[in-house]
Amino acid sequence: MIGLHTHETVSATGTLTGDGDDATGFASGEYTTPDAFPQARRSSVERVHRLLSSFDYEHTRLRLSELSRRAGLPLSTTHRMVTELLELGMLERDEDNFLCVGVAVWKFGLLTPKTYGIQRVALPFMQDLYATTRLPIHLGIPQGNQTTIVESLRPQGTGQERPRIGQRDPLHVTAVGTALLAFCDSGFQERYLTDLKDHQGADAPEMIRRELAQTRATGCAISKRKTAPNIAIGAPVLDRAGRPLGAVSLVVPEGTSTPPYDHLIRCTARAVQRTAWEQGVA
């Protein structure tokens, strides 16, 4: 298994290497007892996650030293784990010998039910809406206190490249996220708003609370927080219990009248929802 070594070695310079030199703070003796193995496995998975999470759209290729620094792991640990990840196809090297995310990770991602199922169902309807409007269309799913974009159709040109697939934002800052949050259960909403109050002050939750009520009343959320001066309109896709599976949004130019675009995005979300129910995705 990846990185599950139960011993440490000392380099020629006297530096401790192996599992004991990582950033988890485990002492060398902790890996020698059976009870320590579950903890060692968790820390190994965490280190792999930290390595893979070091890659993003701005850092798609990294040198070993850069990967070590961004992951917060010692160079010796990074080198050892990268060697294993290369053998497993989870990392690859490009023509310039930079490290990149491997095809194996991409294949795993394709199997994620929360993304694959709803993305597969929604894409044809998103394509129809894009053919009608030629405006940016996005699909997001809830992930804890954030929304993650899992599909995006947009025209070429400056300013139309974001959000990118995989981008995550707090629920309240996008139309997709607001549409999701408005249909989460009330307990989750209150916890979210309480946390927002702690970080942004007393006024922020009340403003968001009004937006959530408006979204539930109209069936769509309207926001400019991430798209200003353009306007984003989002509508939820719900499961049979009324919980949000995802949300689709349309970004219209500044000064555009919201109707009929709010009607179009609601119709698209409902078509996705109906098909998801029929295909057992919901």
Score class of each variant (00 low, 15 high):
residue 222 I to T: 14
residue 199 H to M: 09
residue 175 A to T: 06
residue 186 S to K: 03
residue 207 M to D: 12
residue 150 V to K: 00
residue 223 S to E: 03
residue 145 N to D: 14
residue 167 Q to L: 09
residue 190 E to H: 08
residue 171 L to W: 06
residue 157 G to M: 08
residue 185 D to A: 05
residue 148 T to G: 01
residue 232 A to C: 11
residue 229 P to V: 12
residue 162 R to V: 05
residue 228 A to F: 07
residue 238 L to C: 05
residue 163 P to N: 07
residue 186 S to M: 01
residue 147 T to F: 05
residue 215 T to C: 15
residue 180 L to M: 08
residue 171 L to I: 06
residue 189 Q to I: 08
residue 171 L to M: 09
residue 183 F to H: 09
residue 227 T to H: 10
residue 204 A to S: 13
residue 185 D to N: 15
residue 148 T to V: 13
residue 196 L to I: 10
residue 180 L to E: 05
residue 239 D to I: 00
residue 216 R to Y: 03
residue 225 R to K: 15
residue 201 G to E: 13
residue 197 K to R: 15
residue 187 G to H: 09
residue 219 G to S: 05
residue 222 I to E: 04
residue 213 A to L: 12
residue 187 G to K: 11
residue 238 L to V: 04
residue 165 I to T: 11
residue 164 R to H: 11
residue 146 Q to M: 10
residue 158 T to Y: 08
residue 160 Q to T: 06
residue 213 A to W: 06
residue 149 I to P: 00
residue 212 L to S: 00
residue 146 Q to N: 13
residue 168 R to T: 09
residue 226 K to F: 04
residue 174 T to R: 08
residue 161 E to K: 13
residue 177 G to C: 05
residue 180 L to I: 15
residue 223 S to W: 00
residue 232 A to R: 02
residue 156 Q to A: 10
residue 231 I to L: 14
residue 149 I to Q: 00
residue 203 D to G: 03
residue 167 Q to V: 04
